[in-house]
Design a protein around this nucleic acid. Sequence first.
DNA 1: CAGTTTACGAGACACGATGTCTACGATGTC
DNA 2: GACATCGTAGACATCGTGTCTCGTAAACTG
Lengths: 216, 216
Amino acid sequence: MPKLWNETIETHRRAVRDAILNTTAELTAEHGLRSVTMSQIAENAGIGRATLYKYFPDVEAILLAWHDRQITEHLRQLAEVRDQTDGAGEQLEAVLRAFAHISRQSRGHHGTELSAFLHRDERVVRAQQRLHGMIRDLVSEGAQTGVFRDDIAPDELATYCLHALTAAAALPSEAAANRLVTVTLSGLRDGHPTPDDRRPTSRHQHQERHTERSGH
Amino acid sequence: MPKLWNETIETHRRAVRDAILNTTAELTAEHGLRSVTMSQIAENAGIGRATLYKYFPDVEAILLAWHDRQITEHLRQLAEVRDQTDGAGEQLEAVLRAFAHISRQSRGHHGTELSAFLHRDERVVRAQQRLHGMIRDLVSEGAQTGVFRDDIAPDELATYCLHALTAAAALPSEAAANRLVTVTLSGLRDGHPTPDDRRPTSRHQHQERHTERSGH
DNA sequence: CAGTTTACGAGACACGATGTCTACGATGTC
DNA sequence: GACATCGTAGACATCGTGTCTCGTAAACTG
């Protein structure tokens, strides 16, 4: 692989840089965050160790650059999706859908969490599942009572709850956290709208604006 | 600190173990995930390096044990909150509120994300902010148009969106991800209900089911 | 085409972290 | 008081790190 001399120097350096980033992402996803070393990266990227140091000073810098590349690319995609749509409501829906898609794809990469390195452990997984189970049971019970929506599996709603509420860590005040809970609960109620398991592309443009949910 | 000999051996080992876990959490929050070493932990915990190895084989094991302790304790708290309430709806609301509270408190610990180690970098922060800004602007515009709720700051709603949708990574199918978007959007609409920055305990039972958004 | 610049790789180096082991002192248990 | 257990300090080989030099090959310059 070291012989990927491309036409100009500029493009060559770019190619090597990308190869480093990709290799690092793979190694991270494979062996966890903490065990990735400069030596491994150099070897797997097919370049010398000294060469690697001419591109990045340490592993953290590589991870940072990788994350930067990822999020920049995602931003570009999302902006494109947004600009291909009209109206704030439709735009946001399209952007959120694209974001969910991206989130799904970049799972396993090591995502944006240290899960890749923690979820290797069985105990942690089981503890998370107990937490998930607790929420799921409450959602399920509430759905049967008619308090919560029953058009979506309690399992998925529980996942939604847990992730949505981690946003609390980023909020500045306790009051804001309470508002977050309110918003999250709104997502759990919302009556029993039209089943929304399929193609979104032809649904939200003419409906949903002023008609609100008419069906059911 | 090495002289924390407590009465019995059992309690002593427990105390040392907890000290190790706490020290590791502090060091992680301070210097990031990757830079924490066994030597540092031993020194900061006030014990010998060889002793540390008699408790844990490596840093990962300590982090695992710490995370396990955290989540177990959280589970206990949440179960307590749940059992002090009646009715699935109220129980879930109480549990989610407690969970949000916990999330807020354990931010900075290193949370459950590798953010503690990535968010140290300015570029990453700015990239995240651009993403946040894009969503926020759409939410804001939609609120002015009347499509989305306007009782909560677009900033907070954007945070909610981004976190909620990271759940997509944990979902098994693309259809499930689409349902997740639907649920998340439900949280953004939900008419303009009573301002909910305060006590929730007596609101959601009789309203909100068949009334749907009446105002506007 | 010849000369210069740039990038690469291999090897060497000192340093720090790792994981293991031994010997010895201190503490709790019987 | 005898014994088991725990903690500490030190030694050790090994590995990753960060820096450097040197020899080579490719790309840019005129």
